[in-house]
Design a binder for these strands. Structure first.
Length: 655
DNA sequence: ATAGGGTTAG
C-alpha cells in the first residue's frame, strides 16, 4: 500500500480556487457551449453532403418542441412519439442536436438518447456527446454520466474528463474516479492539481484514507506539485488514521514555508490532540491559529469543548464556553448540546438544565441530540418521571425516530428495571422500520439478564446472530455474568468460548464474573486458574479481582495460594508498562512490593482476625514472600525465562 | 460538527 512520504513538495499557491467543486463558476456555462455548438455545426455536416434547407431546420425545431412536451407530460412517451411521428427519422444527428439545444434538460436528452440507442444503436456525433456529457456533469449526475460514457463509448476531451473525476468524487464514486486516473496515466497526460485535490477530498469524505495515500503516491510519481489544499487533505488523512503527530509535523513543515492551511486542518489536529489528552498542544495550536491570522471559528471551539468534556475536564470546558459568550461569540445549538451532554455525563444535571433553558430563551430550540443528552442525564440522576416527560416532549416535536434515540431510551428503561417497557420500544422499532443495531440488542439482552430471564436473553442473542449483526462482547457478557451468578459455570464457559471464537476479546473486568463466582463457592484454585489466563492474555487484573481472590483465600486459609498471588504480581505484571503506570498512581513506585502485599493483608485482617493473629500471619506471609523475591532476582529477566519460571512456580505451588 | 453501551483511584 502506498504511504505518504515524510516530506512533500509545496507549490506556493496559497488559496487555490476550487476548480472542480464549484461547477457554476468553473465550468463553461451550458449556454456558451450551445453557441459553440451552433458555430461548429455550420462546419460539420453529419450524414449530409449538402446544407439542410432552412425549412427542414424549422421542421426539426417544431418537432423537438413537440417531443420535449410529450416527454415531459406523458409517462408512455415512447409509444406516443411513434404514433404521433410514424415516419419521422429520430436518428438524424441534426435532430439530436436540435433536441439538446431545445430541451435544456440533460436528463430528458439522456432518456431520449437511451431510447434511440436501444432501438437503433444510435450514437450521437462527438460534439453532441460532449455537450450532453458536460451538462450531465454540470447537473452532478455522476451515475448518468458514467452510464452515458459506457454506452456511447465516446472519448471526452481532457477538461471534461477532469470534471468527470470531480463529479464522481462529489458523488462518492471514488473507485470510478480512480479508474479515470488510470486512463489519464495510460495516455500519458497528467490531470491538474485541482483535479488531484478533488479526488483526495473525495476519498477523504468516504473515509478511504488508503486511497488518499495511494493517490498521493501516484501524484508524486506523476511529479505533480502539491499545494496547500493538498496539504490540508493529507493532514486530515493523517488525523483520520490517528497519526496526529505526523499530521502535526506536516503542519509545522508548511508553516515554516510560510503557508497556512484552512481552519479545518487545524480543527482536525485539535480534535486529535484532545483525544490524546495533549491539551498543551491544543493550546499551542490555538495560539498558532491566531498568530497566523486564522481565527479559531465556532467549529474549533466546538472541538476544544468536546475534547475537554470527553476528558472530564468540565470546569475548563465551562470556562471556555462562558468566555466565548462574554467575548460575543454566540454558541450555536451544537455547542450548547455538546456542553449539556458533557454536564449530563458527569452528573451535573442542574447546570445542564440551566444551559437548556438559557438556549431556549435565546431562541435556539433543542434538537434530537440535545433532548437525548438531557434525557440521558435525567435518567442518570434517577429521575425516571422527568425523563419520561422529556421523552414524550421530544416525541411530540417529531423527534426520536432514530436508532440512537431508541437505544438511549431502551438502555435506561432496562437499567432502571423496566425491562418490559424497554422491550416494547424494541418491538416498536421493528414495526416502524427503524434499524435495530447491536446496541439495541445488547440493551435488551442486558435487561433480560438483570431480571433473570435467561431464556429470553439467549433467544435475543440468537436472533441478533441470525440477523447477521456483528455481536460485540457486550452481547455475551450480561448472559455470562448472570450464569456465573446462578452457578451455571458450564453454560457460562460455553458462551465465553463462543464469544472468543467470534474474535471478541473480553476485557479484564469480564474475568471477574468467573473469579468471584468461583470464590463464592470456595473454588479458589479454579479462580486462580482464571487469573493465570488473564495474565497470559496480557490483561491487567483490576484491584477488585485481587480483592475477591484474597478475601476468598483468607476465608479458607490457603496461604499457599496467597503467596502465589504475590508471585504473579511480582513475576507477571511488574514488568509491564501498564502496571508500572498503575503502581505509580498507587504511590508505590520505588517501594518494595511488600507494601502492596501489606495493603491487602491489613484490610483483610481488620475484618477477620485479632491484632495478634494478624501480626503472626503477616510475618509468615512476609517470609513466604521473601522466598519468591529472592528466586525472582536470580533470574536474569528475559521474557522467555520469566515465563518458564512462571510455569515452574505454578507446579511448585500445586505440589 | 452535536446524541446511544462497561473500567479505575482516595
Amino acid at each position: 500500500m502506498a504511504r505518504a512520504p515524510s516530506s512533500i513538495v509545496i507549490f506556493s499557491r496559497q488559496r487555490p480556487c476550487r476548480t472542480c467543486r464549484n461547477f457554476s463558476t468553473q465550468i463553461r456555462k451550458l449556454t456558451v457551449e450551445r453557441k459553440e455548438i451552433e458555430f461548429i455545426s455550420e462546419g460539420i455536416k453529419p450524414n449530409q453532403n449538402h446544407e439542410l434547407p432552412q425549412s427542414v431546420n424549422q421542421h426539426f425545431t417544431d418537432v423537438t418542441k413537440e417531443v420535449a412536451k410529450i416527454m415531459r407530460t406523458k409517462s408512455n412517451w415512447e409509444q406516443t412519439l411513434m404514433l404521433d411521428f410514424p415516419s419521422f427519422n429520430f436518428t438524424d444527428p441534426q435532430f439530436f442536436w436540435q433536441l439538446l439545444k431545445q430541451q435544456n434538460n440533460a436528463f430528458l436528452s439522456l432518456r431520449f438518447f437511451h431510447w434511440l440507442h436501444l432501438h437503433s444503436d444510435f450514437v450521437p456525433d462527438q460534439v453532441s456527446c460532449s455537450v450532453l456529457f458536460d451538462s450531465l456533469l454540470e447537473a452532478k449526475a455522476c451515475n448518468a454520466a458514467k452510464y452515458f460514457l459506457q454506452v456511447s463509448s465516446f472519448t471526452p476531451e481532457q477538461g471534461s474528463l477532469e470534471r468527470y473525476i470531480c463529479c464522481l468524487c462529489d458523488g462518492g464514486m471514488v473507485n470510478d474516479a480512480l479508474d479515470v486516473f488510470v486512463k489519464f496515466k495510460d495516455i500519458g497526460i497528467c490531470p491538474s492539481i485541482a483535479t488531484w485535490n478533488s479526488a483526495l477530498l473525495g476519498c477523504l469524505v468516504v473515509q478511504r484514507t488508503d486511497l488518499v495515500w495511494k493517490l498521493y503516491h501516484d501524484m508524486l510519481e506523476s511529479r505533480v506539485v502539491a499545494d496547500i489544499e493538498t496539504v490540508e487533505y493529507l493532514i486530515r488523512a493523517f488525523c483520520y488514521d490517528g497519526k496526529f503527530m505526523k499530521g502535526y509535523q506536516l503542519l509545522r513543515q508548511v508553516l515554516e514555508e510560510g503557508l497556512v492551511p484552512r481552519n479545518i486542518a487545524f480543527n482536525a489536529l485539535i480534535s486529535g490532540f484532545c483525544k490524546l489528552r495533549n491539551f498543551v498542544r491544543v493550546s499551542e495550536l490555538l495560539h498558532t491559529m491566531i498568530a497566523k491570522n486564522c481565527a479559531p471559528d465556532i467549529y474549533t471551539y466546538q472541538e476544544v469543548i468536546n475534547g475537554l468534556c470527553k476528558n472530564k475536564m468540565l470546569l475548563n470546558a465551562l470556562r471556555i464556553f462562558n468566555d466565548l459568550k462574554n467575548r460575543g461569540y454566540s454558541p450555536d445549538r451544537v455547542m450548547y448540546t455538546t456542553m449539556i451532554h458533557g454536564l449530563c455525563e458527569m452528573g451535573w444535571i442542574r447546570n445542564a438544565r440551566k444551559l437548556w433553558f438559557e438556549m431556549i430563551n435565546k431562541g435556539i430550540l433543542p434538537n434530537e441530540y440535545t433532548y437525548n443528552s438531557l434525557i440521558h442525564g435525567t435518567f442518570k440522576n434517577g429521575e425516571f418521571r422527568k425523563a419520561r416527560k422529556l421523552y414524550d416532549d421530544m416525541r411530540d416535536r417529531g423527534y426520536g425516530e432514530t436508532t440512537a434515540s431508541y437505544n438511549m431510551m431502551i438502555t435506561h428503561l432496562c437499567l432502571c428495571g423496566r425491562t418490559n417497557e424497554g422491550f416494547e420500544l424494541f418491538k416498536e422499532m421493528a414495526q416502524k422500520g427503524i434499524i435495530r443495531d447491536v446496541i439495541s440488542y445488547n440493551a435488551v439482552i442486558n435487561g433480560f439478564c438483570k431480571k433473570g430471564m435467561m431464556v429470553e436473553g439467549k433467544n435475543l442473542l440468537n436472533e441478533l446472530l441470525a440477523h447477521g449483526i456483528q455481536p460485540s462482547s457486550l452481547s455475551y457478557i450480561p448472559l455470562i455474568k448472570k450464569l456465573c451468578e446462578l452457578g451455571d459455570m458450564k453454560e457460562a464457559k460455553q458462551l465465553w468460548n463462543d464469544m472468543q471464537n467470534k474474535g471478541l476479546k473480553p476485557m479484564a473486568c469480564d474475568y471477574d464474573h468467573f473469579i468471584s463466582a468461583l470464590c463464592v463457592r470456595d473454588h479458589v484454585m479454579d479462580g486462580m486458574d482464571w487469573l493465570v489466563v488473564m495474565l497470559k492474555n496480557k490483561l491487567r487484573p483490576k484491584k477488585k479481582t485481587f480483592e475477591t481472590l484474597i478475601k476468598c483465600v483468607s476465608h479458607c486459609g490457603r496461604l499457599d495460594v496467597m503467596s502465589r498471588i504475590v508471585y504473579y504480581i511480582k513475576m507477571g505484571i511488574c514488568n509491564s508498562l501498564v502496571w508500572k503506570f498503575d503502581m505509580k498512581k498507587m504511590g508505590w513506585r520505588n517501594k518494595r512490593p511488600e507494601s502492596f502485599f501489606k495493603v491487602y493483608t491489613r484490610r483483610r485482617t481488620r475484618s477477620v482476625g485479632t491484632k495478634k493473629e494478624e501480626l503472626a500471619k503477616a510475618s509468615k506471609r512476609k517470609s513466604l514472600f521473601k522466598v519468591y523475591t529472592r528466586r525472582r532476582t536470580k533470574s536474569t529477566g528475559t521474557k522467555k525465562e520469566e515465563l518458564a519460571e512462571g510455569s515452574r512456580g505454578k507446579s511448585l505451588f500445586e505440589a
